[in-house]
């Protein structure tokens, strides 16, 4: 054993240990759920179940509240993504390309969405919604989902638009293209990776949002994560694990689709200006 450690070198061993700790800590809980979802019965203290089964999948899909929550979640996420694209992308373009009064003030005002601890902000919003009769309405739920996405939905596209070289737009203009044509054929396609990442992130964020919906959407707007709160306490562990996979699947699929665009740099431009 010792000669082996020496031959590999302490650095390799150290890195390997880091990797193991990393995988156990971050992926262990997820792997545990993945196994549970396909288990028929798992008796303590077996390390792996002896009886595999798909019976919990049909059990979960037969529950009415669960099935309807899946549709509702996707509907809300789609609305939130569409609304945020419509209101944020024009703003991002303006920040990147147009000089207008108070532009810096407006750009930085989005920092406010991150300047308050979330649950405190949600409570404040719930107090306001209570007055405006927005509790337990679709509009209320969509608005509370927008808080978390407003900033990066504006900032990531802003830096994407800024990274498009003005010279390319100008040469297209010189060649006789209309401003709209330039935007559609040059600026938009080049900024697309940033916009795509921001949109996907928005969709996932809305799909996963639990705390705010739990506060203002109960009892009519019970999305998947909100249902999950009660599943954890009321259902058998296997059912909870199956539902976890259903809730996580869209995330994994969208991330695999977008992994070409996804980098620490693009992501962090949504939370700080560089």
């Amino acid at each position: 054993m010792r000669w082996y450690l020496k031959a590999v070198g302490p650095k390799k061993v150290f890195e390997f240990l880091v990797l193991v700790v990393f995988i156990v800590f971050f992926l262990g809980p997820l792997l545990n759920l993945a196994i549970l979802a396909f288990t028929g019965n798992w008796v303590y203290p077996d390390v792996l179940p002896k009886e595999w089964s798909l019976k919990w999948w049909s059990f979960v899909l037969e529950q009415d509240e669960i099935a309807s929550s899946i549709g509702l979640s996707f509907l809300i996420a789609a609305i939130v993504t569409a609304v945020s694209i419509v209101i944020c992308i024009p703003a991002a373009y303006a920040f990147a390309r147009i000089r207008f009064p108070l532009s810096r003030f407006f750009l930085f005002s989005f920092l406010l969405t991150n300047a308050f601890p979330k649950m405190g902000l949600y409570i404040s919003i719930a107090v306001l919604f209570y007055r405006l009769d927005l509790m337990n309405t679709l509009l209320g739920v969509v608005l509370i989902h927008l808080i978390n996405v407003l900033m990066f939905m504006t900032w990531i596209p802003t830096s994407a638009f800024r990274n498009v070289h003005a010279a390319q737009e100008e040469s297209a203009r010189d060649a006789g293209a209309s401003p709209f044509r330039v935007f559609r054929s040059i600026t938009l396609p080049m900024a697309m990776p940033g916009i795509a990442v921001a949109s996907i992130f928005t969709f996932l964020n809305s799909l996963d949002e639990a705390q705010g919906t739990f506060l203002v959407g109960i009892p009519n707007y019970r999305t998947m994560p909100v249902i999950m709160y009660s599943i954890i306490s009321d259902y058998p562990a296997y059912a909870g694990a199956v539902f976890s996979i259903i809730l996580t699947a869209p995330t994994i699929i969208l991330l695999l689709a977008a992994r070409r665009f996804l980098s620490a740099d693009v992501m962090s431009s949504g939370f700080q200006l560089k």
Binding site: A94, F110, L143
Partner: peptide, 28 residues
Amino acid sequence: KMGVLGLLLVLPSFLVLFVIVILPVALS
């Protein structure tokens, strides 16, 4: 004209920000 256009493009998202952050904090 460009200045007005810029403000118009930014206004909708700022209004949302106002309703979901500034107003609630003041009210609470």
